[in-house]
């Protein structure tokens, strides 16, 4: 199975890169883009064929390594 892990800064954490990208888009005339949050995306190729196990394993590695719980949160999709 494949798991996709999306890691983003918590809403309470200021994201200077996202802010800079949003400012750049606004200066390019994209007034409709109110804000941007930058994050990280991981694709995990997993040996298991069970979605529940894939999700549990992805969550375990996200907790342990991929995300820093002090500043980040994550979301997982499996297929």
């Amino acid at each position: 199975m494949r798991a996709r892990v999306f890691v983003t800064l918590k809403p309470s954490v200021f994201d200077p890169q996202g802010r800079t990208i949003a400012d750049a888009l606004q200066s390019l005339g994209y007034d409709g883009v109110a804000d941007v949050r930058q994050g990280k995306y991981f694709e995990l190729d997993l040996a298991t064929t069970e979605a529940a196990r894939a999700k549990a394993l992805a969550a375990e590695v996200a907790d342990k390594l991929l995300a820093n719980p002090v500043i980040e949160t994550y979301r997982i999709e499996v297929d």
Partner: peptide, 11 residues
């Protein structure tokens, strides 16, 4: 130690 480091404010 507690806490984390973010990118410098001015990038």
């Amino acid at each position: 130690l507690p806490g984390a480091m973010l990118r410098n404010k001015g990038l």
